[in-house]
C-alpha cells in the first residue's frame, strides 16, 4: 500500500513546529500503524534525514506509550484502540494521513509526535493509591469483596494512562483518567479510609496541571483504548460532591 503522510515535525518544546509531507510505499496491509512509521523512518535514515520521533514500546496495546492524533482522532480512525493495534488494512491505498501529536497545555511537545504526559503521574501522586506499607497486609481472603464490585473496579482499573481521553476532549480534560482511578479505589473496601481526601486532592491536582473541565461530550470514552466507561466520571462527580457537601464525620 502507498500513503502520503502529513507529519507534524517539531525540534523541541521551544521551537515552533510545522507539517512535513512524506510518501511511503510498499506498506503491507497487515502492518500496524507504528510499523508503517518504522518503514518511513528506515527510509528517512537511509536518506540521511532525521526520522520522525514517536512514542511506542509494548506494541500490544497495554503500555500506553503510543499516542498519535491521526486524521483528527486520538489513536486514529477506530474507536477504543491504541495506535500500535491499528492496522493499515483499515486505511485505503493512496490515502493521505495527517499525524499530529496529542495536544494539551499539560502535554508539552518533546519532539515531533512525542509529548510529555507526566502531568498524569502527578495526579496519581495526589492519592491514586491505597496507603499501605509493605508487610502490613492481612490475609488476602480476610475481606470478601463482592464479585460484581471487584469486576467493576477492574473495569476502571484497566486505564493504560495513554492520555487519549485528554487528546480527544475538546476541553483537554483529564476527567476520564482521574475518575478511572477514583472509581476503581472507591469501589473497594480498602479504598474507603482515604476516599474523601483522595477525590479532592486528585481533582485539585488535575486543575493545577491546567487540564480543562469536563463537558460530558463522551469523546474520551469513544477513544479510550481501555474502554473506561463514562460512569467513572459520574462516580467521581458523586464522590466529589459528597466529599465537599457532607460534613467530615471525623473533623475535630
Amino acid at each position: 500500500m502507498r500513503f502520503t503522510l502529513r507529519v507534524w515535525r517539531q525540534k523541541d518544546a521551544k521551537s515552533p513546529g510545522q507539517f512535513e509531507t512524506y510518501e511511503v510505499d510498499g506498506v503491507p496491509a497487515d502492518a500496524s500503524f507504528l510499523e508503517m512509521l518504522d518503514i518511513l523512518n528506515e527510509k528517512l535514515i537511509k536518506e540521511g534525514k532525521e526520522p520522525v520521533a514517536f512514542d511506542h514500546d509494548c506494541r500490544e496495546g497495554i503500555c500506553g506509550s503510543c499516542g498519535l492524533f491521526i486524521n483528527g482522532r486520538a489513536h486514529g480512525p477506530l474507536p477504543n484502540i491504541t495506535t500500535c493495534r491499528l492496522y493499515m488494512r483499515h486505511f485505503k491505498d493512496g490515502d493521505t494521513i495527517t499525524i499530529e501529536p496529542f495536544r494539551a497545555r499539560p502535554f508539552p511537545v518533546i519532539k515531533d509526535l512525542v509529548v510529555d504526559r507526566s502531568a498524569l503521574d502527578r495526579i496519581i501522586q495526589k492519592g491514586g493509591y491505597i496507603s499501605v506499607n509493605t508487610g502490613s497486609a492481612p490475609d488476602a481472603n480476610s475481606i470478601p469483596i463482592a464479585k460484581a464490585a471487584a469486576d467493576r473496579a477492574f473495569d476502571y482499573a484497566t486505564c493504560i494512562g495513554c492520555g487519549a481521553c485528554v487528546a480527544a476532549c475538546k476541553n483537554a480534560s483529564a476527567m476520564l483518567f482521574t475518575s478511572a482511578k477514583v472509581a476503581h479505589l472507591a469501589l473497594l473496601p480498602q479504598g474507603q479510609p482515604e476516599r474523601r481526601e483522595r477525590v479532592k486532592r486528585m481533582v485539585a491536582q488535575m486543575d493545577a496541571e491546567g487540564f480543562g473541565h469536563c463537558s460530558n461530550t463522551g469523546a474520551c470514552a469513544v477513544e479510550c483504548p481501555a474502554k473506561i466507561p463514562l460512569s467513572a466520571i459520574a462516580r467521581l462527580q458523586r464522590d466529589f460532591i459528597w466529599a465537599n457537601l457532607t460534613p467530615d464525620p471525623y473533623a475535630r
Binding site: 486524521n71 483528527g72 482522532r73 475538546k170 461530550t217 463522551g218 469523546a219 469513544v222
Partner: peptide, 8 residues
C-alpha cells in the same frame, strides 16, 4: 484536523 464528529 479534528474529526470531533466521529466521537461526539
Amino acid at each position: 484536523l479534528n474529526a470531533a464528529h466521529a466521537n461526539t
